[in-house]
């Protein structure tokens, strides 16, 4: 099976709506409910494993990490959540976390556990290609998909390498800053998409600051293969707590409309 065929058997056709929640926020029990709410209108679920020091995240997701850890969420609980999710859905689940979480368990062990619970791939926010030799070898061995980050200031030669080592998609950060919903999309996003699409062969998904249907539409129109929405969803959990599932479903179904070709 070619890479393309293998990819197509796991991932739906682009464009994608990728949606994010932090596992364990506000409790491990509720996360499954939220994932199922996301699932109906999303192509890929990104599930954050909480970390004590989420340095690439803005205030919204930082607070989600705090809530999750306060609720006692352990990494094994996150794997359990994915295992339970698999009873209801076959949609791809990408785990997103920081390298210390992976490293503390032993890189290969972490990936094997992730694979066994039914996760599709992993994003490690603070692991650039230069530091990822052991990680990449273990991903290949365990069959976990990889997603590396690219940024507006990533030069073409690096983009090429990032594209090379990302088996699921390239996660293009739209701006200079941390995660967090923003009113307006930054100009940097559009320039970055044009450049990334000219260099990368894998799907390019754009995230950071995306919070509305209009944003989704504008990014897809600019050539993105997918759009990642995180903080805007996490904000609903912050506001509505246990009752957020319905709001999430409503919100994601609205975002989904941004994918429709005009």
């Amino acid at each position: 099976m070619s890479f393309k065929d293998a990819h197509a058997s796991v991932y739906p056709k682009t464009p994608w709506l990728v949606t994010f929640v932090t596992a364990g926020d506000p409790s491990p029990e509720l996360t499954l409910k939220f994932m199922l709410a996301l699932e109906k209108h999303s192509d890929i679920i990104e599930l954050g494993i909480p970390f004590s020091d989420p340095m690439a995240d803005g205030p919204t997701i930082q607070k989600a990490n705090v809530r999750a850890l306060k609720a006692g969420t352990k990494v094994k609980d996150v794997f359990e959540i994915v295992r339970n999710f698999r009873e209801y859905s076959s949609k791809p689940v990408i785990l997103m976390t920081y390298y210390n979480i992976v490293y503390a368990r032993g890189v290969e062990n972490f990936l094997r556990e992730a694979k066994d619970c039914g996760a599709t791939g992993v994003i490690v926010v603070d692991l650039p290609v230069e530091e990822s030799e052991e990680y990449l070898r273990a991903c290949e061995k365990t069959g976990m998909d990889t997603v590396f980050l690219a940024a507006p200031n990533t030069p073409d030669d690096r983009l090429r390498v990032i594209d090379e080592v990302s088996s699921a998609f390239v996660y293009l950060v739209s701006l200079y800053g941390t995660t967090g919903a923003r009113e307006e999309l930054p100009e940097t996003a559009f320039k970055a998409i044009t450049r990334a699409k000219s260099v990368c062969r894998k799907p390019v998904c754009v995230g950071f600051g995306v919070s509305k249907k209009e944003h989704v539409k504008a990014l897809i129109d600019a050539g993105a293969d997918g759009v990642v929405v995180g903080s805007a969803i996490v904000r609903l959990i912050e506001e509505f707590g246990e009752g957020a599932a319905e709001k999430i479903e409503e919100f994601v179904s609205e975002l989904r409309k941004g994918l429709e070709k005009s």
């Binding site: 340095m55 603070d126 650039p128 940024a151 200031n153 990533t154 690096r158 950060v173």
Partner: peptide, 13 residues
């Protein structure tokens, strides 16, 4: 040691 940072910080480093 190393450079375990988000991609965006690689060029400034």
């Amino acid at each position: 040691g190393g450079q375990f940072v988000p991609e965006v910080l690689i060029p400034p480093l």
